[in-house]
Measured scan of single mutants.
Amino acid sequence: RSTHNEMEKNRRAHLRLCLEKLKGLVPLGPESSRHTTLSLLTKAKLHIKKLE
């Protein structure tokens, strides 16, 4: 059980790190620190579409 908890903790930490990296790559506007994961991913998707 503790192994599972540790793996889950590591998974969440990795996900958080990846989202922070994404936040640095996507133009978010003036309220960049107030975005939810969903809004960050939505803006990333729109940004990628613009680049295509």
Rank of each mutant, 00 (worst) to 15 (best):
M7P: 13
K49M: 05
L51Y: 06
H4L: 14
K45I: 05
V26Q: 01
E20G: 07
E20V: 08
H47D: 01
R12E: 00
T3K: 06
S32V: 09
P30D: 07
K45P: 03
L28Y: 05
E8F: 11
K43Y: 03
E8P: 06
E52R: 15
L41K: 01
L46R: 13
K21M: 01
E20T: 08
L51Q: 09
S33I: 15
N10F: 04
L40E: 02
R12V: 05
T3Q: 07
G24R: 14
T37N: 09
S33Q: 11
R12I: 05
E52N: 11
V26C: 10
A13L: 03
S2V: 05
K21P: 00
L41W: 15
L25W: 13
S32N: 10
C18W: 12
K23G: 01
M7Q: 13
E52K: 15
H35M: 07
S33D: 09
A44W: 11
G24A: 13
K43R: 09
S33N: 12
K9S: 10
K23T: 02
L46N: 15
A13F: 07
E6D: 13
L19W: 15
K43E: 00
K43H: 04
L46E: 10
I48N: 04
M7E: 05
R12Y: 03
K45Q: 01
L19V: 03
I48G: 03
K49Y: 04
A13Y: 06
N10P: 15
L25G: 01
L46W: 07
L15E: 02
E8Q: 09
H47K: 14
K45T: 01
S39N: 15
S39C: 09
H14W: 07
S39F: 04
E52H: 14
I48H: 01
L46C: 08
T36Y: 13
E20P: 05
H47S: 14
G29T: 06
R12G: 10
L41I: 14
H4N: 13
L17E: 12
K23R: 10
S2Q: 06
E52L: 13
S39P: 05
H14C: 07
P27Q: 13
E52Y: 11
I48S: 03
L22R: 00
A13S: 10
L41P: 01
R12T: 09
K43T: 04
T42I: 05
L22Y: 00
S2N: 14
L17S: 14
K49D: 00
R11K: 14
H47N: 13
K50C: 04
N5W: 11
L19F: 08
H4Y: 04
T37K: 15
K49I: 01
V26G: 03
K49R: 11
K43L: 03
T36I: 12
I48R: 03
C18F: 03
K45N: 06
N5I: 10
L51H: 15
V26P: 00
L51V: 00
G24H: 06
E8R: 03
M7H: 11
S39Q: 07
G29Y: 09
H47E: 05
L40R: 05
A13P: 06
H14L: 12
K21S: 00
L15N: 02
T42W: 04
L25D: 00
L41A: 03
C18K: 00
L40G: 01
L17D: 02
L38W: 12
K43G: 01
K23Y: 00
S39M: 01
R11E: 02
P27I: 05
N5R: 11
S33V: 15
L15D: 04
L46I: 13
T3W: 03
L17I: 10
G24W: 08
